[in-house]
Write a protein that binds this DNA or RNA. Sequence first.
RNA 1: GCACCCAUAGCUCAGCUGGAUAGAGCGUUGCCCUCCGAAGGCAAAGGUCGCACGUUCGAAUCGUGCUGGGUGCACCA
Length: 607
Amino acid sequence: MTGAATAELDLTCALWHGLGRKTGFDQMNLFAEIRTTVLTALTEMQAEGILPAGLDFASVAVEPPRDAAHGDMATNAAMVLAKPAGKQPRVIADALAAKLMADPRITAADVAGPGFLNLRLATEMWQSVVKAALTTGTDFGRADVGKGRSVNVEFVSANPTGPMHVGHVRGAVVGDALANLLAFAGWTVTREYYINDGGAQVDVLARSAYERYREAHGLEPEIREGLYPGDYLIPVGEALKETYGDTLLDKPEAVWLSDVREFSTQMMMQMIRDDLAALGVRMDLYSSEKALYGTGKIEAAINTLRDMDLIYEGVLEPPKGKEPEDWEPRVQTLFRSTAHGDDVDRPVQKSDGSWTYFAPDIAYHFDKVQRGYDQLIDIFGADHGGYVKRMKAAVSALSNGRVSLDIKLIQLVKLWKNGEPFKMSKRAGTFVTLRDVVEMAGADVTRFIMLTRKNDVALDFDFARVLEQSKDNPVFYVQYANARVNSILRKSREAGVDVSDATLAAADLTKLDHTAEIAVAKKLAEWPRLVEIAARGNEPHRVAFYLYELASDLHGLWNRGNDDVSLRFLQDDTATSQAKIALVRAVGVVICSGLGILGVTPVEEMR
RNA sequence: GCACCCAUAGCUCAGCUGGAUAGAGCGUUGCCCUCCGAAGGCAAAGGUCGCACGUUCGAAUCGUGCUGGGUGCACCA
């Protein structure tokens, strides 16, 4: 643990320690600790000849049993080692159990079922988890699965042709939360936005803005078919007038296109940055597609592939089954992506010799590889699914397999309001903007709800339901749990009980011994493990689900105090109160920590 | 035609590198406030994990083949 962590903890969630990587802290992952203990015991058994040498322990797991009645933790060691060791599972399990029982932390080790070893841990172990959460604050749960390696998370990357819409929101939230999660799990994270400012769409933007420029001069704009009609371009036209006066009026496109394109793209990117800020998303880096042109970077990337014999001139087969009417065979420059797992080779140059969109994308990813990242992650919309294999193939080839690219496809968000499909076209013409969503639901609610589904499953977002203040609404439910934590702390202080974190951390936790209380401590013990699992799979939604479960446990314990007075947190005896409140506070700490990863502001009081 | 994603309780969804009797919420039924926030909690009922083979000591999870739904498929980005 870092020294700073214990210095000054306050009672709000302000103790959130940020997301930078930290080292040298005590991870306090009980499951990992016990697994180490199990592996040590297994190694001893090898030395004693009970087990043969040369066994692979990689698949030995220590995890929570499905049914709490089975114990606190279960290991499959005996079952996975039985075959390679040539022994009966029960023989191994019995010997392992005998060894583990010598450990004072383990109070029971029972062989069950086909060869599971169910372990029970001493109550002090769970009490120590509470203490750890209070002494390390929101650093509790930090993991080091990243081991300081660098990861680049590219997300959003919306075209700079207009405001961000709903379709971008989920990708932005998932990417940002994933970046937070990875940082918390020991990765060095870069958040990056790739600006698609090199293609035909920014020309369209320029032409659309030019019409608004004419409009600003009192002329009738000609928003032809194929131009962007949204009135968000009106201010761009006015700004153009401000900057260029009438010097661009009645001039051929060749004169103004480049300047207007640059000007409008800048303004669109500023709008997008503002949109992202409204959602609480901040990028570390904005990379430009256009900047790749004319620098030789595309050529360099393609030549690198060519040197590997992965580039050739050829003619693709027509797509089978649904052949386009105007299909005709063409000689193109192709990337042999099939050598790296793709289904067909992909064109990098059009038949007229200009680059396809894929070429600068290859160069861009090559650039990321050359910048030295150990891992790349792209967050794409689900409609880019057909792009995954070729992109992975390119990264695999360009990094000689050193860098892995994980692509997360984000499924659609369906908007609803009171059970009716929600459509809105306030200013953008035809779509619901990110601003619309944030203004109606708030950034915190939006972020949390967007993380209550796996990325590859479609998500329903009902404006009425997400704002509901009841347990139907997971955001509210978790926030309410945190508010209750703060409520208890308030009441305690009013009652004259010292509930500063320093005092709680030093509380006599042996008074925390009821099974209902220990059950909550066990849930807290799962937090570091959950962080590891979520980070390993790049699955931030797991954090949201965990927080819901933790909130549920707290609500449950709270209500048991209604029937059983001894379970109320505030007792006559100060020392007992402090022990119980330490547990409550520890739950609050983990909720703050988890919400921090999701990028959601914890509330201290419901109103 | 091919590729990718999805299919789990009436509904919406979790389910960890394969683990024991598959879990939540909503809805249904019945309970719990002189008591720290009932904005909450407890309990009951409810499932051939789309289908069929296969791998394994063990499959919702892995593989193959189907069925149904979504997305995408040369010279767009």
